[in-house]
């Protein structure tokens, strides 16, 4: 399998995950509403997602994307390290490239750790029924709002969730624009717009996801 194909898989799955993050953040914004509104809306939204067949298909695509993104990134990184061989005694990489672009693997591992913890906190409890039982609200929906509310009143989780959105921002900034280039987007002006879009996207995602736990904590 060619290098181009392997890189394309990382790029395509990455872009799909980028789209997912937009939807995810939009829905999470519901948590910022006053509690009497937020609880009902958030829980009914989460029930709708769980009961939709279309969303189930997308959810499987999501699991596959994450797994393929991680596996192929691992394979490509291993291969690239082998290609490089002996490293320089002195190397001032910061003078010719961004820190994020040189450390996508490290950033990716941090994000993976976050995803695992995040899945244990929510997905395992709500969807798989593992761990503490989730109560239902007055409308009969699973009270996912309560799960979130309780979790984000633990200061350690707030710190964990908020801090790890910083590597996410760096990863997205480099990843988004590079994915397009890997897939062969080379329009000169378009690439300039893409670079700016990637920065805005990364900041919005990083700050957006990062600030929610803090706001919920003080609610």
């Amino acid at each position: 399998m060619s290098l181009f194909f392997k890189k394309s898989i990382i790029a395509a799955t990455g872009l799909f995950l980028c789209i997912f993050l937009i939807v995810h953040l939009s829905a999470n914004m519901l948590l910022l509403l006053p509690e009497n509104l937020a609880r009902g809306l958030y829980n009914s939204y989460s029930t709708t997602l769980r009961e939709s067949i279309l969303i189930s298909i997308i959810a499987y695509l999501l699991y596959i994307s994450i797994i393929f993104h991680v596996i192929y990134a691992g394979i490509v990184t291993y291969k690239n390290r082998q290609s490089k061989g002996v490293r320089n005694v002195m190397n001032h990489k910061n003078e010719n490239s961004s820190w994020a672009s040189q450390n996508m693997g490290v950033l990716g591992v941090l994000i993976l750790i976050f995803i695992v913890v995040h899945l244990v906190n929510f997905w395992a409890r709500v969807k798989l029924g593992i761990g503490e039982n989730v109560k239902t609200d007055v409308a009969g929906n699973m009270d996912v709002y309560e799960v979130t509310f309780t979790l984000f009143h633990n200061i350690y989780y707030v710190i964990f969730y908020s801090i790890l959105m910083i590597p996410l921002g760096f990863h997205l900034h480099h990843g988004l624009k590079s994915a397009f280039k890997t897939l062969g987007f080379y329009h000169k002006k378009g690439l300039k717009i893409l670079a700016k879009t990637s920065l805005i996207y990364a900041v919005v995602m990083s700050v957006g996801f990062g600030i929610i736990p803090i706001i919920v904590y003080f609610k």
Binding site: L3, F4, K6, K7, V76, K79, N80, S83, K84, K93, N96, S97, S98, S101, Q102, M104, H174, K177, S178, K181, T182
Partner: peptide, 8 residues
């Protein structure tokens, strides 16, 4: 190796 667009 493969290109990861560090742009160095």
């Amino acid at each position: 190796g493969s290109c990861t667009f560090t742009a160095a």
